[in-house]
Design a binder for these strands. Structure first.
Lengths: 341, 341
DNA sequence: ATGAAAGCGCTAACAA
DNA sequence: TTGTTAGCGCTTTCAT
C-alpha cells in the first residue's frame, strides 16, 4: 500500500541517504551516527565501526545545510567574494589568494563579478546573505554601500577600493604614494611635461592615483584625460594627446588597460622609444615588450590574503573599529620609464 | 526570568529575523508570510501589504538553506566550478562565462582551484556535494574520476579535458585538429624539422596535441620534450633543443606557459627572427611582441557557456547518453609562425 | 483565502 | 556511552 508521497520519498532516498538511513543500517540510533560523523569521541569503537561501515555502503554524506540550521555556531563555512570581474587578472589573483586562505580554514568561496554595476553589487550581496555566507569580501563599485547595513551581522571587508556609506575593514594598494613615486621617477629622468591617462575619475583608486600624480609634479600637472574605459579609448586618447598642443615627453597611465592602450598608441606613432611611459599595475609579458614597460606593481595576492585574514578575524568575533590596511606597491623599472626627456 | 537559552536566542534574533518574527509584526500567520515571500497569488492585497511592510521594517531575508530543506524541488540554485587554477587566464575566462550563464538562470557559483592535485579534486567535489550544489563543472586533474559515481544524482560536466573512470558530458577544444593545423601551417612555410614542447604528457589535452603534431608530420616528428611544468622549464628545454644535435627550424609549443618560455628562450638566443613558433592557446599581448606570436586560439568563454548550458540541461532532468562537445580552435597568424625555413 | 500541524536532516539539551 | 525529545526556519499538507 504505497501512496504518491511514499514514492516521491523513495526517489529522494535513492538520491541521497540520510542519517536516519545510516542509523537503521547500522542498527543504532540517529544520534550515535551524528556523533560518529562529527568525530565526537564518546562512542564505543565497535559501534563507531558499524556506523562507518554503513556510511560507506550507503555513500552517506552529511547535509551541511541541515546541520548548520540547528548548530549553535551557525557557520556555513562559505564566504562570498564579489570582484570587478573574475576574469581580469587582478581580480583573479585576489580571488585565488582568498581561496587559498579559505582552504586553510576549511571554508569555501562563492564568487560574483560586478562589472561596475551597483545594482548587481546589491543583488549579489543580498543573494549571498540569503545563502548565509559567513562574510563578504567586496570590491565596491562606484555606487553607495550603505545597503550593507541591512545585512547586519554579516562581516564585510572591502578590497581594491574604499567604500561609500559603510565603514568596514578595507584593504587597498598605496595608490597615492605609488603614483607619486612613478611620476617622481619620470621627473628624475628629466621630464617636465608628464601626461596623465586614467580610468573613470569618480573611482577612489583613480582619484588617489591622480592625486599622487599631481603631488609629484608640485600641483602643476600636464595634459590629463580621464574616463578611459577600455584599451581602445586609451589608445585614441594617447594619440590625441601626443598630437595635441602640449605633447608630453612622458606618460603616466593610471590603470592596467589604459597602459596597454598607451603602449599600442606609442607603437603606432613610432614614439615608443622617445616618449617615456610608466603604468600603474603590472601585466604579464610587460618585460618582453620593446621597450619593456616600467610599472608600479601591485600585490593582488597579498591584498587577497590580507582581506581574507581580516574577514576571518571578524567572523571569529573581533569587534574593533574599521581598519584601513594599505598594501605597498613597487616600482619596477624595465626600460619604458627610463627614457630621458 | 530569563534563562541562558533565552539570551542566546535573543542574540540570534537580533542577528536575523525569521518568518515568525515577520508574522508576529504583521499580525498574520507564518504561512501567510511564506505565501507573500514566495509570490503566491492567493493573498489579499491588504494582508500582503502588511507583510511587506513588516519584511521591510525588520530587514527580513528568507533563509534559503531552510527553505530548500523542505521544498520539493530541492535546488540550492548553486553550482560548483572546479578549475585548474582560477587565476590562470584560461580558467578565469571559463569561470566568467559559467557565471554569466548562471546569472541568466538565477544560480550562483562556488569555485575551487585544483592545482593538478587529484586529492584536492575529490575533496572539493565532496565538499560541494555536502553543500548540495545542483551540479558540478569540473576540469579533471590527471587522476581518476570514478569517485564521482558516489555522488549519485549530482550532474557533472567535464571541461578542458576528458575524464577517466566516469562518463559525463564533456566540453573540450579540438585539440588534435588544432595542433595538426598549427604544424601543417609550419610545414607550409617550408619547415621539415619541427620541434615539440609540451606540458605533462599524461594529460589528455597534451596527448591529443602531440597526436595532432605527429599526424601533421606524417608520423615522423622532430625533437620533442614533454613534462614542462612551468615557464622556466620550457625556456631551458627550448635552449637545449636549439643547441642540440638536430636543431629544429620551427617549434610547436603545446601549452600557454610553454609558449611564453619558448619566446623567452628564442629572445635570449637572438633566434626569434629565425626560428618559427606557433603556440597552442592565445595570450594577451601576443600581438605586441616582436615578432608577434602566431597561436592556436581556444575559446574558453564558449567552453564555459557550453558547459553551463549542458549542465543546466542535466539539472533540469535531461537524461540522454554522455555527450562529447568539441569547441573549434582558430589559427591566428601574427608573424612568428610565418618565418620561412 | 488563511491557518495549524507535520516534517525536511540535522544538532542541542537532557534523560537513561 | 547511548538514546529521546525538541526544534533550527522554512514549505508542505490538510483543515477551516
Amino acid at each position: 500500500m504505497r501512496t504518491v508521497i511514499d514514492i516521491d520519498r523513495d526517489r529522494r532516498m535513492a538520491h541521497r541517504p540520510t542519517m536516519n538511513d545510516v542509523a537503521r543500517t547500522a542498527g543504532v540510533s540517529l544520534k550515535t551516527v551524528s556523533r560518529v560523523v562529527n568525530g565526537e569521541p564518546t562512542v564505543t569503537p565497535d559501534l563507531a565501526a558499524r556506523v562507518r561501515a554503513a556510511v560507506e555502503s550507503l555513500d552517506y554524506r552529511p547535509h551541511l545545510g541541515a546541520s548548520m540550521l540547528r548548530r549553535n555556531d551557525r557557520r556555513t563555512r562559505t564566504i562570498g567574494v564579489l570582484l570587478a570581474d573574475v576574469s581580469n587578472p587582478f581580480s583573479a589573483a585576489v580571488h585565488r589568494a582568498v581561496e587559498d586562505e579559505c582552504r586553510a580554514r576549511g571554508s569555501h568561496v562563492l564568487t560574483g563579478s560586478l562589472d561596475e554595476d551597483p545594482r548587481r553589487e546589491r543583488e549579489l550581496a543580498s543573494a549571498f546573505a540569503q545563502r548565509q555566507t559567513d562574510g563578504l569580501i567586496l570590491a565596491p563599485t562606484g555606487g553607495d554601500q550603505s545597503y550593507l547595513r541591512r545585512l547586519r551581522g554579516m562581516p564585510v571587508v572591502f578590497v581594491e577600493r574604499s567604500a561609500a556609506g559603510a565603514a568596514a575593514d578595507t584593504v587597498v594598494s598605496t595608490n597615492v604614494a605609488g603614483a607619486a613615486g612613478a611620476v617622481r621617477h619620470l621627473v628624475a629622468y628629466g621630464h617636465r611635461m608628464v601626461g596623465f591617462l586614467g580610468d573613470r575619475r569618480e573611482l577612489p583608486t583613480q582619484r588617489d592615483r591622480h592625486r599622487g600624480y599631481l603631488r609629484a609634479l608640485g600641483g602643476r600637472g600636464g595634459p590629463a584625460v580621464h574616463d578611459l574605459r577600455d584599451e581602445a579609448a586609451a589608445e585614441r586618447a594617447t594619440v590625441a594627446m601626443l598630437r595635441g598642443p602640449d605633447p608630453p615627453t612622458a606618460i603616466f597611465a593610471a590603470q592596467g588597460l589604459v597602459t596597454i592602450g598607451a603602449v599600442r598608441a606609442l607603437r603606432r606613432l613610432d614614439q615608443h622609444r622617445r616618449v617615456a611611459l610608466v603604468g600603474f599595475d603590472d601585466f604579464p609579458l610587460a618585460d618582453l615588450l620593446e621597450p619593456a614597460v616600467t610599472v608600479v606593481q601591485q600585490d593582488p595576492a597579498r591584498i587577497g590574503r590580507t582581506a581574507a585574514a581580516a574577514l576571518f578575524e571578524r567572523i571569529d568575533g573581533y569587534d574593533g573599529p574599521p581598519r584601513e590596511i594599505r598594501i605597498p606597491t613597487t616600482l619596477i623599472p624595465r626600460g619604458s620609464g627610463e627614457i630621458v626627456a
